[in-house]
Design a protein around this nucleic acid. Structure first.
Lengths: 210, 210
DNA sequence: TACCCTTGACCGTACGTGCGGTCAGTAACT
DNA sequence: AGTTACTGACCGCACGTACGGTCAAGGGTA
């Protein structure tokens, strides 16, 4: 029953990943699938709707994945690490979906039609933030703004799509491991001398003439 | 003599930041600037050329900024920290340019016309990578793949544009400080128990049915 | 000073085309 | 008979860009 509908959505995802939303058009899609333009319209109505289903499917998958991970982990450290692993694996093993979503992420901010996807996204970040907050509360993590921390370290995974090459020399597992190490332990070796932030800020302001 | 040229490019940047490249059109641009569509064509020829100048100007600025920063810092730790500060400040104080560039970053990967911008980008990442490598060599940083580390922590700054709100409650300085602390010291408090990566990888694989 | 000539910024319109979406109709299944 | 799947011709328009011009400024020449 899935039949053509899913086939169309998959082709759409592939095309958005490669060419972007604006450059993706019904005619190409149809000819690639050996069907008529009308068929696509029949199943989805508008291009917006296709994008909407793309985004919702993506967020649903990522959310479900996160919940499964939380179900099999306990400590905050394990959870953060496992969430990063999952993020990296998703980029590696569902490359088209990851690229398509992240490329067109702006729509998620602007379009009113994407409220559902936006809600799932909020739920996702609250979930990650909660893990970080728990870790800070029980002393595993340094204190700080949990929501900001979550956004920041998760950002580096989200940004991966711009530089990651599936057939590169680094295996996803190794990549994820380095990513986890960076987020957990940072760059510094051993006991870090605390940084003098006011000095740094002033220095950079000066250098840039701000 | 520069005349309207710069004015046009600025308006283009603003429009790309808000609406994206595809949705930016000459007619809107022209009417916003109170000039004719033909004038834009006269100065730039094609839309591609406008994008090209946008990307090149951005990369030139960032590269110059990085060089200025390296000129006033010595230690690897200071350098990494200052580069992050600069990145965050750029997002905050040159918001339109940052958003416009990052939104349309795909073109940098695909378009042959953007070779110059691509070259500058490569130069930029080699520069950051070199700083990380130096820090690893002199024992300031933990050992690891310097290029990968550079990509990862820089990614979290690049991703900022998707969530940063200029009029939010967090000042750019505070934001940069947290970002630096995360990159330098990681999430973990005190002496981190080393993570069991094979166990984590297996666990995540299992949970996701990969 | 008066003349002409060149240059280049700028304008307005017209054109081609790419593309999203409509619609009337056929075929197959239930 | 009703419903669902699919077709392909067609429409309308948005938009990049080509093109034929206008106009003001500057500079050389007489």
């Amino acid at each position: 029953m899935a039949g053509r509908r899913d086939e169309i959505l998959d082709a759409f995802v592939r095309s958005v990943a490669r060419r972007g939303y604006e450059r993706t058009n019904f005619a190409d899609l149809a000819s690639e699938l050996g069907m008529s333009k009308g068929t696509i319209v029949h199943h989805f109505g508008t291009k917006d709707q296709l994008l909407r289903e793309l985004q919702e499917r993506y967020m649903r998958q990522r959310l479900e994945e996160a919940k499964r991970i939380l179900a099999v982990t306990q400590s905050a450290a394990d959870r953060v690490a496992a969430l990063i692993y999952a993020g990296v694996f998703y980029q590696a093993y569902h490359r088209d979906e990851a690229v398509a979503f992240q490329r067109e992420i702006v729509h998620l901010r602007d379009s009113p039609a994407l409220e559902d996807a936006r809600k799932m996204r909020r739920e996702y970040s609250e979930l990650v933030t909660a893990v970080v907050r728990d870790g800070m509360a029980d002393g595993t993590f340094r204190p700080g703004d949990a929501a900001l921390m979550a956004l920041m370290f998760y950002g580096s995974v989200q940004w991966m799509w711009t530089w990651y090459e599936p057939d590169g020399r680094v295996a996803p597992e190794a990549l994820a491991a380095q990513q986890v190490d960076l987020v957990m332990g940072g760059l510094m070796a051993g006991s870090a001398a605390p940084l003098d932030h006011p000095r740094l800020a002033k220095l950079v302001h000066g250098a840039l003439g701000l």
